[in-house]
Each structure stands twice: as structure tokens, then as C-alpha cells.
Amino acid sequence: MQVDAAAVQRIARLARIKVTEEEARALEQELSGILDWVKQLDEVDTSEVEPMTRVIPMTLKERPDVVTDGGIADEIMANAPVREDHFFVVPKVVE
């Protein structure tokens, strides 16, 4: 068992997902089961292996550092759940 209830709550906090105590108990089992299963990778000797960074060898594309888009505030705001003019409305964060 790698993940206990406190760890589930800590991870859930990092992931910004509310988890009830009952859900945390179920997740303890599920997450531990998955993590135990993936631990079989420890059988593989990777001491001399580079981590993969891309599947197809290519250099990242570049383009001139100029503005190519913009002036679409209406479009950006179109799906906002709460808005005022061109502003997203969020709860007060600074007292």
C-alpha cells in the first residue's frame, strides 16, 4: 500500500479536486493498485538510457517573433461562465 488517506487528500489538493472521505478510501485502494502495477518498471535497467523527449526526431520549429493574431477579445470571452465586458469575473483574492 503506497498511498494512504492523507496522501490522497494531499494529491487531491495539488490537483485541485475535492475528494470526500468516502471517495478517499476508495481512491487509496485504486491508486495504490495502479502504482503497485506500474512499479514493475523497476525490473528494467535504465541506468544507461536517455529519457525519450520526442518520438520522431525533429528540431522544434521556429517562426519570426512577431504578432500574428489578436484583437479577438469577444471570441475569447464568448464561453466565459461569468464575465463583465472583456473581463473574467473571479472571487475576490486580495483583501
Partner: peptide, 23 residues
């Protein structure tokens, strides 16, 4: 995050709002 698009559930503060929305 419930701010720019998609579902939004309100919470007691900003973080609680994120957590409630994503749950």
C-alpha cells in the same frame, strides 16, 4: 478551472471554487 470556459461551481474562495468545479 471554471473561469474562462465550461462548468463553474462557486466555492467559499477561489481555491474552493476550483476544487468544487473540478469535482
Amino acid at each position: 478551472d471554471g473561469v474562462r470556459y465550461g462548468l463553474r461551481k462557486s466555492g467559499t474562495d477561489l481555491i474552493d471554487g476550483y476544487e468544487t468545479t473540478r469535482r
